[in-house]
Design a protein around this nucleic acid. Structure first.
Length: 739
RNA sequence: GGUCGCUUAGCUCAGCCGGUUAGAGCGUGCGGUUUACAUCCGCAAGGUCGCAGGUUCGAUCCCUGCAGCGACCACCA
């Protein structure tokens, strides 16, 4: 054995050895209890960083522990196509490399190129997972756009449509003018901004607004019903001059108006503001759209037509000032503005016809499943977040106007269309105009394949809805789609899965949706434990991410200090669910410390094997009873570690083993054995137990050591002490074998 | 605005059901071994456990209030 443990020479060959042994793929033996983790599929838009590696350290430790316990253990890997995120990332790459936009490339070519891009990233990430030692079953790997997976996703949509849980409707949506797509609330970033607040004259009133350019879409004025200043105006109509001539608006009373804000009067623009939309719904106001899907003012705005909203705002203000319509400007007003989480563009709320999931019954079922303990969320604090979010979710918009994803199984027939607007839009669809919206189209046909003829009118000009699903609509079904398409019998054996191990950032986006879909589609929760990891942050407290440039490639630390050290650095001593804020240099120190630990293990083994050699392979024991306290201590450590695994206190288990191995076993027991007060046989047995206990946390060095021990032992002793060829598939220690 | 959480050594963090001198890693200082490991070993310095009350024989731990920080959700005309 070398004097130092050299991770670079051991890790890759060991991984191959494990993989070839077949132990990553469970033999489906119905007598063994199943244990299954579905890997949260990393996004196909890039690489993994050290933050992602946390889930590998945690999940793989659990997987290895359960495998050693002899359970039918499956860790199913996969990759997510990550709809908008990947599309935006790839659009940037495309523009940089070829100068082309997605529209210039066309839908089919764009899809193919994006697919290749994802496959490339996928193989990079697979390499990273292997390097980290992830003992997942590659033969069952899945991609969210695999045809079989996709089929189930589409079938779910159809089933939900038939049962009234999916509907199509006009709503105010969060529209990203750059992505040209709608977004759910969860896909927005809110930015604090200081913008001028304009006090504008509206006939007898003055009201405050930050968006004067939307005034062309006003269809009412609103005041609080109890506001004494304005009571006499309620339900009355007023005609006054605007930039486009005289207009008449009615005053409505609505509790959404805060009398203390501004002047207590609000212009209601249902077409371009979420709150105003709701006021409009309550008072049956006309919806007047004045900004189009490009974020430009439309034909209803006269001279402002064609201008971007921001530019139009400046012009409108200037023109109003010229006419004395601006009473004052408050330039210190701060508010939050929604931006597209993926590309940063300011969101334009506007009305569009989209597909929605009616979430009421689904959230109710999910809440009771968690409340009844069918799924346990660890740590508990996230269960509280889960409940409060589930209580007030709104219906979920699932259609996206992007190309990268599952295209909706929805079709339209030309002859069914009655209105001129619908006929015009249909024409765009037929021509494959990439910017076509389909708001005016009626009578959708929901079907997986293209219908030959329209079931309503027999028409034959049939075109598919260009929209795709929100990524989370498909990943929400991931535990089901993966297991139903991997190997025969997998779903029956492994569902509901055991643990879902992921970060809290996607608790609502993903974990909650999986529970909802799982219950809806199978009647059972998709996992019995949701183990939520904390987030890795830099020293400024910012989340580690590729876009922020503060991410660390795990391959760097693996190269430098080894996968074992990297994993320990991410796991040991951490409390589940708590963030870790740490600078690059500190993280390096931390991992280096655990690299030293790898070496410590190696050298303990080296010393013990040297002793064995000097004894000519003889393994001696003291007289009965002398080693009893030592074995008691080991027994206690086994039960403590086992207990910590069962209660998901992996950080403490790892830290405990670190201390016990280093400061008890090495500093104390080895020294005592040198002095002769502990028998060599006991030391050797203890070593094997430690290697087993440590294996889930430091798989490579423990396996390397195990192999060294196997090589050094005489045949009979090897059979007695090591039952298995690989530590990976050896049995988790239960009790001490006393001699 | 609502909810949840955090505040312990220079730094990053553990500390489960309240019970002697409050722990780890890294960092710092001093010393040592050089045939298991300098990726080592030993020793040391360093904490009024955010603040103020309360419960208790006893509080870092439980309760209340306050302050600071953070996260999430909602919302800002």
């Amino acid at each position: 054995m070398e004097k130092r443990y050299n991770h670079t020479t051991h890790e890759a060959p060991l991984y191959l050895l494990w993989e070839k042994s077949g132990a990553f793929s469970p033999a489906k033996d119905s007598t063994k209890p199943p244990f299954c983790i579905i890997m949260p599929p990393p996004n196909a838009n890039g690489e993994l960083h050290l933050g992602h590696a946390t889930f590998v350290a945690v999940s793989d430790a659990l997987i290895r522990y359960h495998r050693m316990k002899g359970e039918a253990t499956l860790w199913l890997p996969g990759v997510d196509h990550a709809g908008i995120l990947t599309q935006v990332t790839f659009e940037k790459t495309l523009l940089k490399n070829t100068g082309k936009t997605r529209y210039e490339l066309g839908r089919a070519a764009f899809y193919r190129a994006c697919f290749d891009f994802c496959m490339q990233n996928k193989s990079t990430m697979e390499g990273q997972l292997r390097a980290l030692g992830a003992s997942c079953d590659w033969s069952r790997e899945k991609f969210t756009l695999d045809p079989q997976v996709s089929r189930i996703v589409l079938e779910t949509f159809i089933r939900m449509y038939n049962e009234g849980l999916v509907y199509r409707g006009y709503r105010i949506v969060n529209w990203c003018p750059r992505c040209r797509s709608t977004l759910s609330e969860l896909e927005l970033d809110w930015e604090e901004r200081t913008d001028p607040l304009y006090y504008i004259k509206y006939g007898p009133f003055t009201l405050a607004t930050v968006r004067p350019e939307t005034k062309f879409g006003d269809t009412a004025l609103a005041v609080h019903p109890d506001d004494r200043r304005y009571k006499k105006f309620i339900d009355k109509q007023f005609t006054f001059e605007t930039l486009l001539g005289p207009r008449t608006l009615q005053v409505v009373a609505d509790r959404a108006v805060d009398p203390k804000f501004g002047t207590g009067v609000v212009k209601v623009t249902p077409g371009h503001d979420a709150v105003d939309w709701e006021i409009g719904q309550r008072h049956h106001l006309e919806v007047r759209t004045v900004i189009d899907f490009d974020g430009r003012l439309n034909e209803l705005t006269g001279p402002y037509q064609g201008m971007k909203a921001q530019d139009a705002r400046r012009r409108v203000v200037a023109d109003m000032e010229a006419r004395g319509m601006v009473e004052k400007v408050d330039s210190s007003y701060t508010h939050s503005v929604a931006r597209c989480e993926r590309c940063g563009t300011t969101i334009e709320p506007l009305v569009s016809r989209q597909w929605f999931v009616k979430v009421g019954s689904l959230t109710k079922a999910a809440v009771s499943a968690v409340r009844d303990g069918k799924t346990t969320i660890i740590p508990k604090k996230f269960a509280k977040m889960f409940f409060s979010w589930m209580r007030n979710v709104r219906d979920w918009p699932i259609s996206r106007q992007i190309w990268w994803g599952h295209q909706l199984p929805v079709w339209y027939c030309r002859e069914s269309q009655k209105t001129a607007a619908a006929k015009a839009e249909f024409g765009l669809l037929l021509e494959g105009d990439p910017r076509a919206r389909i708001d005016a189209l009626e009578d959708p046909i929901v079907s997986i394949g293209k219908p030959d003829i329209c079931p309503r009118c027999g028409g034959k000009d049939i075109v598919q809805d260009p929209d795709t699903f929100d990524t989370w609509f498909s990943s929400g079904q991931w535990p089901i789609t993966t297991l139903k398409t991997s190997k025969k019998g997998d779903f029956e054996l492994f569902y509901p899965t055991s643990v879902m191990n992921t970060a809290y950032e996607i608790l609502f986006l993903w974990v909650a949706r999986m529970i909802m879909f799982g219950l809806y589609l199978s009647g059972e929760v998709p996992f019995t434990v949701a183990l939520i990891n904390g987030v890795l942050r830099d020293e400024k407290g910012q989340k580690m991410s590729k876009s922020k440039g503060n991410g660390v490639d795990p391959l760097e630390t693996i190269q430098k200090y080894g996968a074992d050290a990297t994993r320990m650095g991410l796991l040991a001593g951490r409390d589940p669910g708590n963030d870790l804020s740490i600078s690059k240099a500190q993280m390096d120190d931390r991992i280096r410390g655990y690299r030293n630990f790898s070496n410590k293990i190696w050298n303990a083994v080296r010393f013990i094997l040297l002793t064995l050699k000097s004894e000519n392979g003889a393994i001696r024991y003291k007289a009965a009873g002398q080693d009893t306290p030592y074995f008691d201590h080991l027994a206690q450590l086994i039960s403590q570690t086992t207990q910590q695994f069962e209660t998901y206190q992996l950080g403490r288990a790892a830290e405990g083993l670190y201390n016990e191995f280093w400061h008890w076993f090495c500093d104390d027991c080895i020294e005592r054995q040198k002095k002769g007060s502990l028998s060599f046989g006991a030391l050797l047995e203890g070593l094997v137990i430690f290697l087993k206990l440590l294996h889930p946390f430091v798989p490579f060095v423990s396996e390397a050591c195990y192999q060294e021990v196997a090589r050094a032992l005489p045949d009979t002793q090897r059979k007695r002490l090591l039952k298995s060829k690989l530590l990976l598939s050896s049995a988790w220690p239960k009790r001490i074998q006393r001699s």
